[in-house]
């Protein structure tokens, strides 16, 4: 699978851009939290695309963002 780049994203409509990003980050999140992956991905897709691209290139920042999202989700559901 070729890397998702800013120029690749720029050629797609906004809704499609989020879809493309979601398809990339979902598998990573699913590895970490299989049951919450859909919701966590939905939350992270609210983040700016440029930051999402950075997170895809930097697994550490994606992981820390995922843990943040899990905490928010659990607080929301409590």
């Amino acid at each position: 699978q070729e890397p998702l780049t800013a120029s690749l994203l720029a050629g797609a409509p906004p809704q499609e851009q989020k879809q493309m990003l979601g398809e990339r980050i979902y598998p990573v999140i699913h590895e970490m939290h299989p049951t919450l992956a859909g919701k966590i991905t939905g939350m992270l897709l609210e983040i700016d695309n440029s930051e999402l691209l950075h997170m895809l290139e930097s697994p550490e920042s994606l992981h820390s963002k995922v843990e943040e999202a899990v905490a928010v989700l659990q607080a929301h559901q409590a």
Partner: peptide, 22 residues
């Protein structure tokens, strides 16, 4: 009030509707 439908859930291969209301 609390929004029980938040967050929108993403499913691979399914068009994501999360931005529809923006």
């Amino acid at each position: 009030g609390s929004n029980i439908n938040w967050p929108p859930e993403f499913h691979p291969g399914v068009p994501w509707k999360g931005l529809q209301n923006i």
